[in-house]
Amino acid sequence: MALSLAFLVLLPGCAATGDAPRLAADAPPSVAQGKSPLGTGYLGGGALPGGLDLIPPPPAEASAALARDKEGAAAGVAMRGTPRWDLATADADLRPGRAAAAFSCTAGFLIDRDHAPALDRLLGRAMADLGMATGEVKKRYMRPRPFMENGQPSCTPTWEPALRRDGSYPSGHSSIGYGTALILAEIMPDRAAALIARGRAFGDSRRVCNVHWLSDIEEGRVVATATVMRLNADPAFAADLAAARAEVAKLRARPAADMPDCATEAQALGH
């Protein structure tokens, strides 16, 4: 059975100090089996948008869409060893707080539990829903990943055994990244364009990493959009969103502290 998103959690033996994650001997719960390795979200399984109603099947053999996917994968493989590859490797890490922190440079302040606890809580819980929302489609199609087809390495080689048993379509990372960007854009509408662009880049990091096809990433954005719309109808999400909005207003009123290396990120993204 698929290990959808199983590689996203902080696994045993992996310290939260930037060490390369290691695959656990016992696989974490599977999103495709309806079990979240990402913690508790706002929505129950029945409240998640129906992915099979949202997106079409993956591209068919010998189709123009599949040819486009393969061209995109080849272009990603060519980025190995570049700053964009390094950023894609960092974007792969969805341990608690890491996905939200990836948006710090774009937001203009550090997003983590210490500096922005309300926002970190909001995005952490929403991430569980955004990831789980891809499970139904992953389970249906169990699409092989690019590195399985082209024989080239991924940016997280120790995760490849789990990824080989995981459906590629649609991308859970893309859903999480794009959904996070949409939520942040609600809080900071003046930065919406930059935040959405970073969310798109976060998903596209999976193509650069040689673990997702373009169509996986694009359809992950569709799942994210539907999930965020559903989240906005949830009272608990709405309350946490209001708290995060008030927190962010205070954060933006004072100089940012402890920021990551934003110049390197900008270079990697071609800014």
Rank of each mutant, 00 (worst) to 15 (best):
Ile111Cys: 03
Pro117Leu: 03
Leu43Asn: 00
Leu269Met: 06
Leu5Phe: 12
Met127Tyr: 06
Gly203His: 08
Ala197Thr: 11
Cys209Lys: 05
Asp261His: 03
Gly124His: 12
Asp258His: 12
Leu8Tyr: 13
Ala100Pro: 07
Gly72Trp: 14
Leu11Met: 10
Pro49Leu: 02
Ala75Met: 05
His115Trp: 06
Asp26Leu: 05
Thr89Ser: 01
Pro96Gln: 12
His173Gln: 07
Met142His: 08
Glu186Ile: 04
Gln152Gly: 10
Val137His: 04
Asp240Met: 08
Ser171His: 03
Arg68Gly: 14
Asp26Ala: 10
Pro153Lys: 08
Asp258Thr: 10
Ala102Val: 00
Leu123Gly: 05
Asn232Thr: 14
Ala256Asn: 14
Gln33Asn: 06
Ala32Gln: 09
Ser36Thr: 13
Asp91Thr: 10
Glu219Lys: 02
Met142Tyr: 04
Leu11Trp: 13
Ala74Gln: 14
Ala256Thr: 12
Ala99Gln: 01
Pro153Trp: 05
Arg22Cys: 11
Ile176Ala: 15
Pro170Val: 00
Ala73Trp: 01
Ala238Asn: 01
Glu247Asp: 15
Met229Ser: 09
Cys155Ser: 15
Glu71Tyr: 07
Gly199Glu: 08
Glu149Asp: 14
Leu269Gln: 09
Thr82Asn: 06
Ala6Ile: 10
Ala201Glu: 04
Gly76Cys: 03
Glu247Leu: 11
Lys70Thr: 09
Ala268Met: 08
Ile111Phe: 02
Gly97Leu: 04
Gly177Val: 03
Leu10Phe: 05
Phe237Val: 13
Gly45Asp: 06
Asp69Phe: 02
Thr89Ile: 02
Gly46Pro: 09
Cys105Gln: 12
Lys138Glu: 05
Pro37Ile: 02
Val228Gly: 03
Arg191Gln: 15
Cys14Val: 15
Gly13Tyr: 10
Asp26Arg: 09
Pro117Thr: 04
Leu54Ser: 04
Met259Ser: 07
Arg98Lys: 11
Leu123His: 02
Ala236Asn: 11
Asp93Gln: 01
